[in-house]
Design a protein around this nucleic acid. Structure first.
Length: 466
RNA sequence: GGCGCGGUAGCCAAGUGGUAAGGCAAGGGUCUGCAAAACCCUUAUUCGUGGGUUCGAUUCCCACCCGCGCCUCCA
């Protein structure tokens, strides 16, 4: 079967088909750079990465835009407190975010779009919405009047027809006519960061940046729009209202949303002390690959309960995969092809693709890989795995790695150089040959203390980092 | 209260109208100078609870319970 996604808009899992040939125009909601991103954020960003990779591996060409929100209340507050310019402040966290993404091996979208670099375009869009009668001004701010957009609520499947117009609800420190109306443009406040534009002085509301940047770079209708579930309402609902009011066309055809990450069964929060950034985890000795694997291994539409036990078991699982990869790459095999093994490899490759096609079912895809891993190891132990079976096994592992990318260990600072390791291994092998096992074990322990694990295999000594 | 997601072994988790993938952990074994790695065996008569449909339901329907998210710019 072909690629399917669960579309929030239709609440159904639908076959994915881009509007134009094999080009996928996609937009994903990126970070607000007011602090270091936490592992909950990265659950979603890893999901974007898996989504990108699988689309590419399915033969699609991507045009993917992700926003960097570099102006909002928190940013303004924090930057002001530090006496920094907006740019100075957000550059710090933008860089940290991009570094973290690289560490987690997340593919870069074709374009990153910063909100503050699109202020004139946002003003122009708001101007057009004003001209078309979708807005009103109140206390210097400009609001979108949802009463003018009857389809409001179609994404979150809420019925807003009962909202009483004229009710004044004090939300967000601004006055609105209708509880659900939202700010397109916020009135200037003294001492804050403001922009002087064709619609006046002030700063943009949160939602307008995504509508404007998406349409500017990708056109009126996107194939795919992704984000965390918490963005369904109001953010994405508002994006739809603005965008479709502007263009008169459907904004996005497939909406995909990732579920939340919990920590020890609870929402992550600083007050509970269960709030983690990547830096926190690496400081505890966990590797980027372990986190990447853990975040990727639970299908994106399922809540993910993060635990340190989970991280540890991910590490172990990765080790097993690495050992297997090494084995099929380096094993000395007898000539010929074992049809049974060949069939198992083909079945695994098939099942892997089927699972991923089914709304990115990474858990099932992993199941296919591990099942073959066990079958192949059994054959390898028994000598039934032949030279002609190598390519099929490698093909499966390559496909696995193309999606999950955890097999190559990250470079670790201060690690023992490979030359020194090889020297020690040679000394140990010599000691073993002389039946001096005490010395051999001493060398092995010395290496272990320096984070290097030895394995004596039929093909010789293999080492790996702890 | 409204909308949405979910409740499967110690933990993570897939899945189907026909009788429960996979990973981790644990115990036993094979191999090894000892390890490590790898493999084998063992660990859910049962899939939140109660009804219903059916020859048969974990899978479909109804009700209920529990967890989580959104409904105040939080991925």
């Amino acid at each position: 079967m072909s690629l399917r996604f669960h579309n929030t808009l239709t609440q159904q899992t639908q076959e994915f088909q881009p509007l134009e040939g094999n080009l996928v125009r996609m937009y994903t909601c990126g970070p607000t750079v007011y602090d270091y991103a936490h592992i909950g954020n990265f659950r979603t960003f890893v999901f974007y990465d898996i989504l990108r990779r699988w689309l590419r591996l399915s033969g699609y060409k991507l045009d993917h835009v992700m926003n960097i929100t570099d102006v909002d209340d928190k940013i303004i507050r924090n930057a002001t407190k530090l006496g920094q310019s907006l740019k100075e402040y957000t550059d710090t966290y933008t860089k940290a975010f991009l570094d973290d993404c690289a560490t987690l091996r997340l593919e870069r979208p074709e374009r990153l779009a910063r909100a503050t670099e699109h202020i004139p375009q946002m003003a122009a869009a708001i101007k057009q919405l004003e001209d078309d009668g979708f807005t009103y001004r109140s206390d210097g701010s400009i609001y979108f009047r949802i009463a003018k957009f009857p389809e409001y609520g179609k994404l979150s499947h809420n019925d807003f027809s009962g909202i009483v117009a004229g009710a004044r609800v004090d939300v967000d420190e601004y006055d609105k006519n209708d509880a659900r109306d939202f700010a397109l443009w916020k009135a200037p406040k003294p001492g804050e960061f403001n922009w002087d534009t064709e619609i006046g002085v002030g700063r943009p509301g949160w939602h307008i940046e995504c509508s404007v940047m998406a349409v500017q770079y990708l056109g009126a209708t996107l194939d795919l729009h992704a984000g965390g579930v918490d963005l369904v309402f109001p953010h994405h609902e508002n994006e739809i209202a603005q965008s479709e009011a502007l263009t008169g066309k459907q904004f996005a055809r497939y909406w995909v949303h990732s579920e939340f990450l919990l920590v020890d069964g609870q929402k992550m929060s600083k007050s509970l002390g269960n709030f983690y950034t990547l830096r926190d985890l690496f400081a505890k000795g966990f590797t980027p690959e372990s986190l990447r694997y853990l975040l990727a291994s639970v299908p994106y539409r399922k809540g993910l309960n993060f635990t340190f036990d989970g991280l540890t078991s991910s590490k172990t699982a990765i080790e097993r995969l690495r050992t297997f990869k090494h084995r099929i790459d380096s094993a000395k095999l007898a000539p010929g092809t074992n049809d049974t093994v060949a069939g198992q490899a083909a079945a695994a490759i098939h099942q892997f693709r089927e699972a991923m096609d089914d709304d990115l079912n990474t858990a099932e895809a992993l199941g296919a890989v591990f099942e073959f891993l066990r079958e192949a190891n059994t054959s390898l132990d028994a000598g039934g795995f032949l030279e002609g079976n190598r390519a099929g096994a490698q093909e499966l592992m390559n496909r696995f790695e193309a999606v999950f990318e955890v097999l190559v260990p990250a470079e670790q600072a201060g690690a023992l150089p490979p030359e020194e390791i090889e020297t020690l291994i040679a000394a140990r092998t010599a000691a073993k040959k002389g039946r001096d096992f005490a010395k051999a074990d001493a060398i092995r322990n010395e290496l272990l203390e320096k984070g290097v694990i030895l394995e004596d295999t039929k093909e010789g000594v293999r080492w790996k980092r702890k």
